[in-house]
Amino acid sequence: MQQFIATRIVQGIITLIIVSFLAFFLVRLKGDPVDITAPPTFNEDQKQRLRELWGFDKPLAEQYVIFITRAVTGDFGIAYLSKRPAMELVIERLGATWLLAGVASLIGLSVALPLGIISSLKRNSLFDLGSTMLASIGTAMPSFWLGLMMIIFFSVRLRLLPAFGALDPSAIIMPSLTMGVGMAAYLSRLTRSAMLEVLNEDYVRTAYSKGLITRTVVFRHAMKNALIPIMTVFGLQLGWLLGGSVVVESVFSWPGLGRLMIDSIGVRDNTVVQAALLFFSLSFITINIIIDILYAVIDPRIRFD
């Protein structure tokens, strides 16, 4: 077990190194940022000094080594515009994004699990058909559009909820619902199919035949095995959720990492974009390692050697 965790962490670090490489070259795809970020009044000489100051005059490989050795110590450089450390900016926003993703996941799971389980128990019933239809629509809908529709309804018409910002505690309701619906839609369909597969197993039939009530069979016997694929997909969905947060945060002006990244891309602030990409990736990798470890907790048959 310990060795498995160690292996997964090493793998995660290797993945992060590749991501740092991708992020580093990505922000330099369009050449020299000085030409865009420097004030238009700067002459060539002043621009050259700026390049030296920021280290853009060095060969790319050397720049990468400098970037990565500093990044390891948590130093991503100073943001061009705000003149504050990029790391500080990212950490400030990371919490807001995690909070949003966490609440959205809770909403997603607490809708998806009951819907999926009931659908699988009443296969091909009206309930099943209805929830499958809803789930399909939820998957097909652009999440940010759902957010906009909620603003029209709850903020403009009913004047119940704030349309943007994060000042009021109720401000998290709409963005998290927006993101949670897509997740609920996808996970409920998956829960249904995972449950259907398990419900056909012999041991479930045995459990029924020895007279256990449905509730015990579902939660004690079937659910435990159906949880494994659900958790796998939940981990991957979290990536999808983080991705969606970029757009949803823009819709609701939620002060999260996604919006920081978009704003920083807009002003070509490479330091912040690099750090934001790495922290998105770090969040995703960490969650998935935790889920891998949870497998073993849920299912003692799983051994990692």
Partner: peptide, 16 residues
């Protein structure tokens, strides 16, 4: 994959 799809495309198209 560890950079979610939408973030990947937002970052690239924002820069390009």
């Amino acid at each position: 994959l560890s950079i979610p799809f939408v973030i990947r495309v937002v970052a690239i198209s924002g820069i390009v």
